[in-house]
C-alpha cells in the first residue's frame, strides 16, 4: 500500500484529500449547528452547473465552478434574508436552476460525459496540478477565516446576543456561505458532487456526539474529516472504485462508532 505514496496522482489526491477533509469538517461544524445541511447538498449540485460551464467555456472547471457556486451561495443567503421564503426553499430553487444549466451545457457535447462522471463520484485520478492549486487557494482563505471562529460560534449559539455585542452577524452569514461554497466545490474532485454534502456533515455530526464543547467538536471534526479522507482515498486505490464512495463509507463507519460510544446514549 505504501508504494501508492510514490505515485504522483496519489500524492496529489492525498494532499487535496487532507486539505478538503479539514476544511469541509471545520466549516461543516457551523453548517450542522446552524441546521444548514441542505445548503451543503444544494451547493454541491450547484457546483455541477459551474463545472459544466467551465467545461463548456474550455477553462479548468474548478476555476469557473468556484466563483459560480460562491455567487449561488450569496444569492441564496440574500433571498433568505430578504424574503420570508426560508433558506431551504431558496436552496431548492437555485440548486435546481444550476443543475438544469449543467445538464443543458453537458448534453451539448458528448465528450464531456467521462469528465462529468468523475465530478459526480470523485476519483483519485482526477486531481490535477491545477486542481491542487485551487484547493490550496481555498485552504488559505479558510485558514484566514479561523480567527473568526469565536465570532461565528457566538452568532451560531445566539444571534441576538452576538448582535447586541455588535458583531457583524449578517456580513458573517454571507462570508460563511461563500466559504462553504468554495470548499464544497474544491472537494468535488475527491468526493464527487453527489456525496459532497455528506462529506460536509458526517465528521461534525460524529464529533458532536462525542464532544462536550463547541471547540472540542471543531477539533475532533477536523481530525475525523482528515482521517476519513485519507482512509477513503487508500481504499479507492486498493479496490479501484470512485473515491467519493469510499470516503463516505469510512466516515459513515466512524459515525456509527461515535453513536455506539457516545456518552449520551
Amino acid at each position: 500500500m505504501l508504494e501508492a505514496l510514490a505515485l504522483p496522482f496519489m500524492q496529489r489526491a492525498l494532499l487535496a484529500g487532507v486539505l478538503v477533509g479539514a476544511m469541509a469538517s471545520y466549516l461543516g461544524v457551523f453548517v450542522v449547528q446552524r441546521r444548514m445541511s441542505f445548503l451543503g447538498s444544494g451547493l454541491g449540485h450547484a457546483a455541477l452547473g459551474g463545472v459544466a460551464l467551465g467545461l463548456f467555456l474550455g477553462y479548468p472547471p474548478l476555476y469557473v465552478a468556484i466563483p459560480f457556486t460562491v455567487a449561488v451561495a450569496l444569492l441564496i443567503a440574500w433571498v433568505r434574508e430578504r424574503t420570508e421564503l426560508g433558506g431551504d426553499t431558496a436552496v431548492g430553487i437555485f440548486f435546481s436552476l444550476s443543475v438544469a444549466i449543467g445538464i443543458v451545457l453537458l448534453s451539448l457535447k458528448t465528450e464531456y460525459a467521462a469528465d462529468a462522471f468523475t465530478y459526480l463520484f470523485g476519483s483519485i485520478l482526477a486531481v490535477g496540478p491545477a486542481d491542487l492549486w485551487a484547493v490550496a487557494g481555498v485552504a488559505l482563505l479558510t485558514l484566514a477565516s479561523v480567527p473568526l471562529w469565536g465570532r461565528w460560534a457566538y452568532a451560531t449559539f445566539d444571534r441576538d446576543l452576538a448582535r447586541a455585542d455588535r458583531l457583524p452577524v449578517l456580513a458573517d452569514d454571507y462570508l460563511l456561505a461563500a466559504l462553504v461554497a468554495a470548499v464544497v466545490v474544491s472537494a468535488v474532485k475527491v468526493v464527487g458532487i453527489l456525496l459532497v454534502a455528506a462529506f460536509l456533515v458526517l465528521p461534525p455530526a460524529s464529533a458532536r456526539l462525542l464532544a462536550r464543547t463547541f471547540a472540542g467538536t471543531t477539533v475532533l471534526a477536523i481530525g475525523l474529516g482528515v482521517a476519513g479522507a485519507v482512509a477513503g482515498l487508500f481504499l479507492a486505490y486498493l479496490f479501484d472504485v470512485p473515491s467519493g464512495a469510499t470516503v463516505i463509507l469510512v466516515e459513515s463507519g466512524l459515525f456509527l462508532a461515535a453513536l455506539l460510544f457516545s456518552p449520551k446514549t
Binding site: Q33, D165, A215
Partner: peptide, 26 residues
C-alpha cells in the same frame, strides 16, 4: 432562552462569552 439545546457548551463557556464577546475556545 432561545437556547439551542443541541449547542455543545458548558455553563462556564456561556459566562465567559459575556466577558469576551466571542464564543470562547480555550
Amino acid at each position: 432562552k432561545t437556547l439551542d439545546r443541541s449547542f455543545p457548551a458548558l455553563a462556564i463557556e456561556l459566562v465567559v462569552s459575556g466577558l469576551r464577546r466571542r464564543w470562547p475556545g480555550r
